[in-house]
């Protein structure tokens, strides 16, 4: 069987913010791919660049940020596109956005307009993606969508305002919106972080169910290893804008190589040797984005730190197995998949 072309192939993506305090290298040399019909999980602590990566794919990085280099090949309705080479305002890019690649945002409380009804915001999306659709048909379809995501009595809820809905219901509306264009790729950026724990599982069930039904690819972003174990087929462990380790869900959970991955796993209650809370599991916190440690970005927190090696250079990506790679000098001697590329010289207006 010839290897299929992945739906999305991100290569050495770099997205920087040129702030008055300096350059924030939020995503810095990120490479991964999302195969057709698979769920890829991106996991990492808060601030490691997950949301910026997601927004880079959609082309909605706010100024002063910008995708400065790399490629994002997307195999969509309009042929193979390198999204990184397109101007975010380009019509081709805009037509991909929402319809072919959609996103569920982290904050269901504020991600919907407070002064428009649920139906207004959904019908607008439906009519954008299908220009032949009449208003009445769009409304019918909207009710169908709301029912599909498990909203009770969608006929009345369609005319409700956001502030009349609970957090869980709002997140379902966001899910309905995200699937309204029958997207090929659904990006979910911490879709359950901001909602009540008791409803989190239901929303995850809904997403899994929708994936099985529609066979769309998913990029699932979370800081929670437990959620990854439940949902993802493949896992990308991200640290400070780049991939620390990558592999199938079995690789990552059964045979983690990177000390950061191991630390993340220990932070899940019940899986590590002794249950620890998330905060205690990893010493310190993600470094200040303006002052990264030299060498490996994890070196200042790493339990296996080797002076002279880890703080000297960024480690290359080593192969662990057919499906698994990791960026750590502990694997020195293994096949090098990709040398660590130095960051490009860029300026704010380059």
């Amino acid at each position: 069987m010839a290897p299929e072309r992945p739906l999305l192939e991100v290569n050495d993506l770099r997205t920087y913010f040129f702030t008055s305090l300096g350059t924030v290298r939020a995503v810095d040399g990120l490479s991964f791919s999302v195969p057709l019909q698979r769920i890829v999980g991106i996991v990492g602590e808060s601030g490691c660049g997950k949301s910026v990566a997601a927004r880079s794919i959609l082309g909605i990085i706010p100024p002063p940020g910008r995708v400065v280099s790399g490629s994002m090949h997307f195999d969509g309705d309009q042929g193979l596109l390198d999204l990184a080479a397109l101007d975010p305002h380009d019509e081709v890019y805009r037509k991909t956005r929402g319809k072919e690649i959609s996103m569920i945002f982290q904050e269901p409380m504020s991600a919907l307009s407070p002064v428009h009804t649920v139906g207004d915001q959904l019908v607008e999306a439906l009519m954008l993606y299908d220009e032949q659709l009449t208003k009445e048909d769009a409304r019918d379809r909207c009710i169908g969508l709301l029912r599909q995501v498990g909203i009770p009595s969608p006929e009345t809820l369609i005319d409700a305002y956001i502030f009349e809905l609970s957090g869980g219901m709002r997140q379902r509306v966001l899910v309905a919106m995200a699937i309204s264009g029958e997207p090929k790729l659904l990006i979910a950026d911490e879709p359950t972080t901001a909602i009540d724990v008791t409803i989190q599982a239901k929303v995850l069930d809904l997403l899994r169910h929708l994936h099985e039904e529609k066979r769309m690819s998913m990029l699932f972003i979370t800081h929670n290893m437990g959620v990854i174990a439940e949902l993802a087929h493949e896992v990308i462990v991200m640290y400070l804008g780049t991939v620390a380790e990558q592999g199938s869900v079995n690789d990552i959970f059964d045979n983690p190589q990177h000390p950061y991955t191991q630390a993340l796993l220990e932070s899940i209650p019940g899986i590590g040797v002794e249950p620890k809370t998330t905060l205690q599991a990893i010493e310190g916190s993600v470094p200040d984005p303006y002052r990264r440690p030299p060498g490996c970005p994890f070196s200042n927190r790493c339990p296996s730190f080797k002076a002279g090696t880890c703080d000297a250079a960024l480690p290359p990506l080593y192969r662990v197995s057919e499906s698994q790679t990791a960026r750590c000098f502990l694997l020195e001697g293994n096949e090098v998949v990709a040398e660590a590329a130095p960051p490009p010289e860029v300026s704010a207006d380059g």
């Binding site: 959609l58 909605i60 706010p62 305002h89 805009r94 037509k95 991909t96 956005r97 929402g98 319809k99 959609s102 996103m103 945002f105 904050e107 504020s110 991600a111 919907l112 307009s113 407070p114 607008e124 999306a125 954008l128 993606y129 966001l174 919106m177 264009g181």
Partner: peptide, 16 residues
């Protein structure tokens, strides 16, 4: 303009 609902509208594919 900084609010998440604006970003969502942008992510939907609406023109600016």
């Amino acid at each position: 303009l900084k609010r998440p609902y604006v970003e969502l509208a942008r992510a939907k594919g609406l023109t600016e």
